Simulated scan of single mutants.
Amino acid sequence: MISHLSLTTTKSLSASVSLQTDANGFEFLIIEHQKLSAAFALHGGHLVHFQLADQAPIIWLSKTAIFNDKKAIRGGVPVCWPWFGAADPALGENLPAHGFARTSKWALGDISESTEGVVVELKLHSSEATLALWPFQFELTLKATLSDTLKLELITENKSATSLTYRSALHTYLNISAPENVSVSGLNEYFYNSLKGKVLETGDTTLLIDQAIDAIYNKANGQILLEDRKLQRTLSITNTGNDSEVLWTPWVEGAQAFADMPDNGYQTMLCIESTITGEHGQQVAAGEKHTLSTYIK
């Protein structure tokens, strides 16, 4: 998924982990382990690639994704935080969609590795720039546990003197062979259809992919399964700390409207997201933490 990028190593951090840059100096954290390969962009704290040895990639990245310091990256796992969708009007006007975390520069935290895999932490702290958008002191940590499974934990620590409320998404783009080859099961039967004015609907807990989808499902009762008959695999997705799951595919017209997605890009991706979207959001008391996670195996 990243073989088309021309990267140069700037620093080795461990036997399997290095910092690399493209021709424009855009920074990536690259993991090449005996069990897996993975890549993060420091812009957005953004996982852009995850693949087990001798298997098809699990995470999808657009072949025409734009890598710069201004735009969110198309594909991978964007971190939507501290709001999902549009910001609360009380915060002001013209604020970035899906928050500022996905377009901020993150710092490296702890990195450890073993024969089983690699654990990486990326961090984002409150600053004058973030306080101008959202009036809370915080430390945000993305902890990625990479082995023969993928676990992403987004840890929000409230460093303010008062409680805060946030909404969020681990906006996971999953790699598929083709829509007609896959089905999704284990969903909650209740969902809000964003393509029809976010009205509450009920449907089958197993879903076939044959049209555009933009739906907020009530939290699943257990695992969500993505079966791909051509790739001959079933991905099991378990989300915690969330109140909902978002399913999204732009389909033909949506893909054609994106400059950073090939016109046929919708045919090889499906988003199944661990989300906090409810009216009341997630409250975090002063000095406390909350973790939103997704676990894929």
Rank of each mutant, 00 (worst) to 15 (best):
A41E: 03
E288F: 13
A259Q: 10
I237Y: 08
S126I: 02
H4I: 13
K71I: 05
Y166P: 00
E139Y: 02
Q211R: 11
T202E: 14
A132R: 10
D214I: 03
I73F: 04
L52V: 09
V120H: 01
S236P: 01
V48D: 00
G45C: 02
T21E: 15
T206V: 12
L200D: 10
Y192P: 03
K71R: 09
A255K: 05
S177P: 07
A169W: 03
A65E: 12
L150Y: 02
W60I: 12
K198G: 07
A15G: 11
H43F: 04
Q282D: 10
C271L: 02
T206I: 11
D204G: 13
G85C: 06
D88T: 11
D88F: 09
D204S: 14
A41R: 01
S163W: 14
L235M: 07
L164I: 07
S194W: 09
Y166A: 00
T141Y: 06
T149P: 11
A90C: 11
A259D: 14
T10K: 14
V118H: 02
Q283H: 13
V120S: 00
S147R: 14
E157G: 15
I216L: 05
V246D: 01
Y217A: 00
I296L: 08
L29E: 03
T103I: 15
Y266L: 06
D243Y: 07
D22E: 13
G45N: 02
R102K: 06
Q256S: 15
K196Y: 05
P82H: 03
L47Y: 06
T115M: 15
